[in-house]
Design a protein around this nucleic acid. Sequence first.
DNA 1: ACTTACCGTTCGTGATCACTTACCAATCCG
DNA 2: CGGATTGGTAAGTGATCACGAACGGTAAGT
Lengths: 107, 107
Amino acid sequence: MITYQSGEALGALGDRTRRAIFARLAEGPRAVGELAGELPISRPAVSQHLKVLKDAGLVSERAAGTRRIYRLNPVGVGALRDQLDLFWNRALAAYKDAVEQPTEERS
Amino acid sequence: MITYQSGEALGALGDRTRRAIFARLAEGPRAVGELAGELPISRPAVSQHLKVLKDAGLVSERAAGTRRIYRLNPVGVGALRDQLDLFWNRALAAYKDAVEQPTEERS
DNA sequence: ACTTACCGTTCGTGATCACTTACCAATCCG
DNA sequence: CGGATTGGTAAGTGATCACGAACGGTAAGT
């Protein structure tokens, strides 16, 4: 039983290079070599980043001969979206309260 | 002229401590000292993290005497949510394609 | 005006992390 | 089989970053 923590997902997307990989995979499934060819980093670096993204539940892997096709994992991405939705709603509610009750309390 | 980049927002939330601060602010507005009291880090550290979050457009600041009240910025959080929404839709579309065309390719 | 409280900034340091090089395993084709 | 292609892993290094200590600046209270 694998519990994907959205916190780890945000941590995984905190890196700029991983976001680039993530964006490429959003366009469609790709192999490791393809990603390395499109990015200014070596293939091992791509592999390491993919491992982080996979552990975070954001991408999934599929073997095709000697190649490995990576693609976005809708489950992890959806979970992250839901958490951000929650934060967004809270932020909006707090903002509304601040507008409706501008009375300053003295302490 | 402040252009909020969602990439920076994800980068800001990449840090675990900043996520903790972000979660506290999601519960309601807080001053710097309060946040430092709730977290196992010093006040200057909180200040630095708040600066990063503010530059990323995720929080906003309000002066109240010598204290500064921070709260979530619905604009930045909403922008981040929208970008994740886009990724989510793409991931879902790609997943659907893979299911509908498992072997052969038609055109 | 003096004191106290609250906060931002700078600087130095220790740790974490991303990257490359080198090596090894698995698979496909001759 | 044997060579070639594709990828994951280990080790070492350089850079980035988070943290606390010290200092300065501003506002409220006396």
